[in-house]
């Protein structure tokens, strides 16, 4: 190698370093501005709020992912902006080829290492945030494997049908309402099922989503910790009125809930008697929606409860706070 070539190499290297310095500087400044903005200004406003444990968890996860994604996006966009300005071909000049760089082992290794590290980090974080908060408000199917630490939870059955959501409270005689009422500071176990096609129960403010499948008891957990209104929408296309399949509800204080539920149980007793006895899934009648539904044999179903429900003076079921040990299917 002649000394001229060496000098040329050093010159090119110096030029490359100055590009890198610029880029790193821009990236550092932008990241230093954006990260606190995300943490302090954006985090509190991220969906779906913090009404329940799962909503708060989703909000936290979204913040973390945004804080990871922001520097990556800033780096890529800053690089593109820099390259597109600095490395453009001057207009009107004859076409000249660029330097024949076919690869750079260090750059390639660094790229693969960094992206793999980010991905593995996101995976470990996501798995922790899924398992520890008992499924993070997501659907866990009929035999949930990540369950809440508390031993008592309020079971609420969510029944999707074309095109309305109804709720049955097995703890209070299995009465059925169209309004989702929940006590505050309580662990809730949603048992979502469908009478016809696939729906998806999306209680936005609760951070809960679970598909309602016919013949399946789909369980999702969350813990309420704030009073407020709830909007429920269907998020799986279920036919013509899918867009109009929404309802409302409220998280109220435990005593208010108790009063409401007892009153409803009494008031609705005549109607409850006409309903099919409470079960975790129902087989729709041949007529489909609105044509009545019948209990299916399933591991949760208890024959004695069924009989009491039929014959009792008010169709009343005994308290059905499910113990964890009992729930294993």
């Amino acid at each position: 190698m002649t000394s001229e070539e060496t000098a040329d190499r050093i010159e090119r290297r110096r030029e490359g370093l100055s590009h890198w310095k610029w880029l790193t500087g821009v990236w550092l400044i932008l990241t230093a501005i954006i990260e606190p903005v995300i943490y302090f200004l954006i985090w509190p406003h991220l969906p779906p709020g913090n009404m329940t444990s799962s909503a708060r968890g989703a909000q936290f996860d979204m913040m973390v992912l945004t804080m990871i994604a922001a520097p990556v996006m800033v780096a890529v966009l800053a690089y593109f902006a820099y390259a597109l300005i600095v490395f453009r071909h001057p207009k009107g000049r004859p076409l000249v080829d660029g330097p024949p760089l076919r690869g750079n082992l260090r750059v390639q290794t660094a790229w693969i290492t960094i992206t793999s590290a980010i991905v593995m980090g996101a995976f470990v974080f996501g798995t922790y945030e899924l398992i520890v908060p008992a499924g993070a408000g997501g659907a866990e199917g009929p035999s949930p494997i990540w369950t809440p630490a508390s031993h008592t939870e309020l079971p609420v059955q969510v029944i999707g049908q074309q095109w309305i959501w109804t709720y049955r409270y097995p703890t209070f005689g299995g009465f059925e309402t169209t309004q989702l009422m929940l006590p505050n500071n309580t662990e809730i176990a949603f048992h979502v099922t469908s009478l016809d096609v696939i729906h998806s129960f999306w209680a936005y403010q609760l951070g809960v989503k679970a598909d309602a499948n016919p013949g399946v008891d789909d369980v999702a957990f969350t813990q309420t910790n704030q009073l407020g209104r709830i909007t429920v929408r269907c998020s799986e296309l279920c036919g013509i009125w899918h867009g109009a399949m929404y309802g409302y509800g409220e998280v109220v204080s435990p005593s208010a809930f108790e009063t409401w539920a007892k009153a409803m149980e009494r008031r609705l007793a005549p109607a409850t008697r006409l309903l099919p006895p409470f079960a975790w899934t129902y087989t729709p009648s041949a007529n489909g929606a609105g044509g009545g539904y019948y209990p299916q044999t399933d591991p949760y179903y208890d024959k004695t409860l069924y009989d009491q429900g039929r014959s009792g003076p008010e169709g009343n079921l005994p308290a059905l706070r499910v113990e964890k040990s009992q729930r294993v299917g």
């Binding site: 690089y79 750059v107 693969i112 991905v119």
Partner: peptide, 21 residues
């Protein structure tokens, strides 16, 4: 997203010190 990211590596590397038209 790792192999998908390779396409960014390819693109960004090709832009480096290029003569962009």
């Amino acid at each position: 997203s790792i192999p998908t990211g390779f396409i960014y590596l390819v693109g960004m590397g090709t832009l480096w010190k290029a003569r962009i038209r």
